[in-house]
Design a protein around this nucleic acid. Sequence first.
RNA 1: GCCCGGGUGGCGUAACUGGUAGACGCUGGGGACUUAAAAUCCCCUGGCCGCAAGGCCGUGCCGGUUCGAAUCCGGCCCCGGGCACCA
Length: 899
Amino acid sequence: MQQKYNPHVIEREAQKHWEQSGAFRAVESPDQPKYYCLSMFPYPSGKLHMGHVRNYTLGDVVTRYYRMKGYNVLQPMGWDAFGLPAENAAMANGVPPAKWTHDNIATMKQQLASLGFAIDWSRELATCEPDYYRWNQWLFLRMLEKGLAYKKTGVVNWDPVDQTVLANEQVIDGRGWRTGAPVEKREIPMYYMAITRYADELLAELEKLPGWPERVKTMQANWIGKSFGVRFAFPYELDGKNKKLWVFTTRADTIMGITFAAVAAEHPLAARAARDNRELHAFVEECKRGSVMEADLATMEKKGMPTGLHVTHPLTGKKVPLWVGNYVLMAYGEGAVMGVPGHDQRDFEFTTQHGLPIKPVIKPKDGALELPLKAAYVEYGVCMNSGKYDGLDYQGAVDAIAADLKAKGLGEKQVLYRLRDWGISRQRYWGTPIPIIHCERCGDVSVPDGELPVVLPEDCVPDGTGNPLNKREGFLKCQCPKCGKPARRETDTMDTFVDSSWYYIRYACPDNGSAMVDERVRYWLPVDQYIGGIEHAILHLLYSRFWTKVMRDLGLAKFGEPFVNLLTQGMVLNEIFFRKGDTGRITYYNPAEVEVRTDNGGNRSAVLKSDGKPVESGGIGTMSKSKNNGVDPQELIDHYGADIARFFMIFQSPPEMTLAWSNAGVEGAARFLKRLWSFFYDYRAVIEDFPGLAKKLGPAVAQSNPLKLIYHFPDDWRTIDPGHAAIRRDVHLILKQAIFDMQRMQFNTVASAAMKILNAIYSPLGFQDLAQPQEQSQASRQAFYRQQFLHESSSILLRVLAPITPHITHHLWRELKFGESVLTAPWPEPDPAALIEDEIELVVQVNGKKRGDVRVPRDADNKAIEQIVLANPTVQKFVNGQPVKKVVVVPGRLVNVVV
RNA sequence: GCCCGGGUGGCGUAACUGGUAGACGCUGGGGACUUAAAAUCCCCUGGCCGCAAGGCCGUGCCGGUUCGAAUCCGGCCCCGGGCACCA
């Protein structure tokens, strides 16, 4: 064993050992409990970033922990390989997305290998491989057959200069990112998946997911947005015909307060009204400019214009003016709303702006409405100014009004979801081709199963002016499968969320060339622990749940929920440094180029290393290219090694919280592992003779078996050697807490626990007094148990640390002959006998303020404790003769004297 | 704008179902070792008052419940994530 800790050497050795023994290969074995631990697969952007390192380190800790607990663990890895960045790179460098992607995968795989993750690489997959995406196509066709996939028009961002569809990300302040041209909305035909058919189940089954964070479930529930309301119609007459304008409301109780109605700019009625109204036409056109993003729509100034048309109030029969409003969403409900300014804040603001009347119809249950209204009164109350409905509460009014509307054939109660069907068509090259053929005679025809996969040509280079597949004759031209006549292939590809909606299922059977799934899926699925960024809380996780349910209903899966437990990790942040130039231009400097000094009072100053002049701090933010505050994990690994990087990641922050980068923190991690190494270096000299000791000491210790890691201490040990017994108690208490923290995945305190154990056994023990016992005397027994205690504590320390820093613990475990591999060592359990204490310490409070502590016998009852506490001089000083009202005793913790 | 989180020393954080606020680590200061430096080891490190013993204040802000609140409730401020074509 080397005296100096050299991470690079021991990490290479450990990784070689694992690789040669095929240690991470997961094989189905029905007799063993399985554990499927999955981290979200990366997009192959080029290099690993810190978020990946954090994600996969967390996954690896879970994986290795469950292995030591005796589970058959699967931890696979793959690549979310289709997507926009590959096309952007192609435009910048002229390299086809396929080549760029494959090169990136090779680089990142290398990087992952250097971190020593317990990954079964035999199951690796990439979503851009035809073997994978053919099943996207196959399942899409099954959904089409069932009506779960269908075609309709949808709205997209359109760049009028490049004549191309833009992703939301490519729209900056309402303009195209490359051309700077104002973006327009455009309607195009697209394929949809009917996720709304599963809305109720997706909502209801959130309750069956106790292993998911509450906040994720709340976000999903709000996203699905089930609301109970009333769908009703305003009758109107147009072009000599009687028509109906349908709207939806959750506040039917306010229906008597309607002073106007409004439709979205995309509503057919808006188009009809604009036909002979030039001003309105211009307004509708104006509304069509700008992006389709909801955040943009919601923050827009509320604008509107009267159509000149009137509709009839369904209950009063009065005429109500019809407006076009840019805040009415075509995608939600009917694309039209009733306007009740008295009780809806958006309507209120709209009305104030356009001088429409306000009619309050709801008042607080007890009390009156303050008039005139300064804002909409949106609380539930009772009806007023509402004729026959006056005095009714919310539910009573809704019931009565819905019944009256129904009697007139003008409406009824309806359940509405905010959730919209999933548009999967993308007018992009680098994705799964949608397996449809367009025939002039037969229409849209599915590609027959036998001709799947529709393979994407891999040598196209996009240029920013639309999908290059449209110029690829070889791909475009085909025969209609129905009539055999020349036809044209669909060039739209699928949303990459389709790829990521089921990859975790395919890991069970990546090599099956003839079926999407097989019996191995039954063994491994569902995923026991899924780990990934909180930014995926809604879309990816909701689509995956939907996809799983579709596969279940098609008889392809036996489970309805894909992820039993979910851990959403926080983002990785770093400081931002910049200078403002004379022209106001901001230049960002990477924190690695900046030196920060802190004085005693906590005042910080930062200078650029290269010129020694100050830079400004821009606070802390997510690592990003634009702020130039990223840290390259590769540099970290090259400099410190994998274990230090991993330990830092785990120790710095709890998994769910954001993690702030800190060079000093990395140094701290390095210091700890060096200290661990030097402890075991010294300890090795002692342990070499240890197995022989048991023989020398005879029958008194024959039951001890250090190599099987079962330790026995006689009852009188606590009196023979109270000092070490107390330390052993500490170690086992720390272990007990570490197990609790491991279970709740608060790994930062598990790392702390390892530090505490090392602190507990390091200094007080020193090795020089561990003389070799020669005979069966009391002193020899004492020395023996001290050695056994040290052996036990050391083995606990290495095992607690093994999931976090696998390389150094692998090396030390073998070096000290604890066993063949710590990877398969049993996870340690605290010894109940070690935790026993004869006296316990209680905190004493007077009126809730800490005033000292007392030691009482372990089995003292509350009355005895009360007497001891009241007799305490400090307590008497603070009680100061006042009558004692009450004494609260919290067993094992504290006593509060109330005066 | 809407939905969801978070806010504790100079810093990262800890405090299990309400029960000793600041474990563990970093930074800073002091000391030991060294010819010297690095490394390592030891001590101190929330604020205020005090020679000390000790006392008072303190978990974003305001208020409430409780013997007792970082933790529960109501209101506010600030920061972060998501908003359906970034992944």
